[in-house]
Design a protein around this nucleic acid. Structure first.
Lengths: 194, 194
DNA sequence: TGTACATCAGTGAACGCGCGTTCACTGATGTAC
DNA sequence: TGTACATCAGTGAACGCGCGTTCACTGATGTAC
């Protein structure tokens, strides 16, 4: 004697996580309320706790999902020519700078994550190391795990440049920051190993 | 017929801005309440609006002050040998990573600033371009304004690396990110100009 | 095949709390006499 | 010199509001008969 199709609740949960991804990146972790997050998914606030133990738990699940999406993107590019170069130029493009809610979760939320609970930092850390591994594979297909460190360095440059370009209100300086980010990554890859 | 010494209110205002700098970096712009900010300065909430028009106005004033402090630091180092190298190593040190409230305002607040009101973004943008000019002077004393762009690239690397090191919960990966930041900056400076 | 019913995803009002902001007031101060 | 007083920085209670969370309930569903 059961009621809904057995996958019904999973579908709803996924819908919440996906719309929460956009909302949290747009308004921040502190700036997004549970009622708003649920309304974005077409639900009311009361249903929230049937799906998540707390707001923190939703944030952790959403961050994991968002970083997983980044990995999917990186793996798609890995099959194409000039995948790494195209990724860097897309990441440091005016289009990505102006699309916070559809863009990289690290770029939108990194300093709030650093201030958050251990559960959220743990979800971020685990997810990001996966992203770094996929980025390393995209940079140098077939290279071993040593590439993770260089990939983390690339991520720091990408995220720092994107955030800085978003914060500056002068369009020329903002564009210059994006261009310098591309130059920095090229320089890092050309540099000799440690 | 006046009451307090004429500089009394200015002194109090400065005290509020200085303690707000630490609190805002520690708990974020959204995470710091007016009552807490005033208690940090040894006052009660009601006095706030005798000093500032709104919480936004305090944040803008505090960001301007914090970036000015960064400029003071850079100018001090400009008088010492290896000033730039020492700055980079201090910025990307475990000590700075672990001292959010006493550290760089960009590292603590950049993505929240990008989400904030035009007044706050304007204060940040103006202040940061000043920081970039002082950093350019520290990098290459006597060089003209062209160095500002390279300095902005350095700042993006510094801020991105610091934030990423703070967000990762594995101490080894965190330390590796700091080391990669130093390597990226060295590579950027060694790279040929545009 | 048609109907009664157990299930449970979702509703919406309510909880105590802290938010940014307002305001009537207090009381220490430096001046005027 | 001593005192009355105008000033105004600071107090603390209160405002409406949205927060995260709880809970009694509703009502569409698929199953059992």
């Amino acid at each position: 004697v059961a009621r809904y199709g057995k996958e019904h609740k999973d579908v709803t949960r996924r819908r919440i996580v996906e719309s929460a991804g956009r909302r949290l990146k747009k308004d921040g972790l502190d700036g997004s309320g549970v009622a708003t997050l649920m309304a974005d998914a077409g639900l009311t606030n009361g249903a929230f706790y049937a799906h998540f133990e707390s707001k923190d738990a939703l944030i952790a699940a959403t961050i994991t999902d968002q970083l997983q999406e980044q990995r999917v993107l990186l793996r798609q590019l890995a099959g194409e020519p000039d995948g790494f170069t195209r990724f860097v130029h897309g990441y440091l493009s005016p289009r990505h700078r102006d699309d916070v809610e559809g863009g990289c979760p690290s770029g939108a939320l990194l300093d709030e994550v650093a201030r958050s609970s251990p559960a959220i930092r743990g979800a971020y850390s685990a997810g990001l190391l996966g992203v770094a591994d996929d980025l390393a594979a995209l940079m140098a297909p077939g290279a071993p795990a040593g590439g993770r460190r260089t990939a983390l360095g690339c991520i720091a440059i990408l995220v720092g440049s994107l955030q800085l370009a978003r914060a500056l209100d002068d369009p020329q300086e903002s564009a210059a920051v994006l261009a310098e980010g591309v130059r920095s990554i090229a320089a890092l890859l050309a540099a000799p190993e440690r």
